[in-house]
Design a protein around this nucleic acid. Structure first.
Lengths: 166, 166
DNA sequence: TATTGTTATACTCTATAACTATA
DNA sequence: TATAGTTATAGAGTATAACAATA
């Protein structure tokens, strides 16, 4: 998911919300916009991202960094270019994210035997451990996000989403 | 998708992509990340947003403006605060978006009889027309995004997404 | 001639705080 | 005292162009 932007606001304390703002949700449920998949996915990603960023905060990670770390831990040995393509990240963004994670010693840039221009991303020992902790938190975030769905419905949602994005 | 950000890059010409980047998608399909709903919704929102922004470009609209216009046309008479809550927009962002749309003469700020602090958003005649044209384009974008799904599957996806975000 | 990673830069989007007018 | 809208500002996130090394 990309990015972490809407994070803070969306996941912010809901304690201070006014009665008016709260009750209006129901009123808007039948608006045409509420039926658009684009709107629904945007909202889902906003909420999900916000929650995940919140749960990852104590590891000093954001979703965007987590995604890179996850791919470095996946055993697929992605090049920076490939990673950017998969995560919808600009090559320059990949550089910045990898710099941070490499600076923390959790991933490494390794030379590609097939192409000396390319750099393969792999996780270090410490990276695998950090990923294990982080993945626990993102699983918790997902579980909370999908709490209204049964196990079968969750699989169904995953399958439908995968079909439209791959 | 989200707002417009990832737009350009994601929807950009795919003609120049290297063979390596293209083929790697399949290799990453079995990575843990590809099974996370957060990742899938992020990617869906990114692609959808990019495509919608592209199709709305000739109307000089972006998804974020379209969303505000759509709500102003919905007959639900949202206040700016309510709109921000529904669209996950900061109050200050709402001001900026409404300024633009009001400047174009497609929506109006009307006084709230119940609360003189609040301002109700409604569409003008021109706004309704612009919305009609824009909605045609977003429907086209959605149709293209969901082209691999049957009608029943599309409804199912909408229903599942709605359950987790409302 | 084209591509990978990199850097620098600008632009968009988002978040924060402070102000006003109402409540 | 709290809320709606506004303003100004800063910060993330993202996109663009140009460059060196390699293909």
């Amino acid at each position: 998911m990309p990015p972490s932007t809407t994070a803070a606001s969306a996941a912010a304390p809901s304690s201070t919300k006014s009665a008016t703002s709260e009750g209006s949700e129901e009123r808007f449920l039948h608006s045409p916009l509420a039926r658009e998949v684009a709107f629904l996915t945007a909202r889902a990603r906003g909420r999900g991202n916000a929650l995940a960023n919140q749960l990852l905060a104590d590891l000093d990670l954001k979703v965007r960094h987590f995604s890179v770390l996850a791919m470095a831990c996946s055993g697929t040995n992605p090049s920076q270019r490939e990673l950017g393509g998969f995560l919808d990240l600009d090559p320059s963004q990949v550089v910045a994210l990898v710099d941070v994670l490499e600076g923390r010693g959790v991933i490494r840039r390794e030379p590609d035997p097939r192409d000396r221009r390319s750099k393969i991303l792999v996780a270090t020992e410490a990276g695998q451990e950090l990923y294990a902790q982080a993945a626990r938190r993102t699983r918790e975030a997902e579980d909370q996000t999908l709490k209204k769905l049964s196990s079968a419905e969750r699989d169904q949602l995953r399958e439908l989403l995968a079909r439209i994005v791959f």
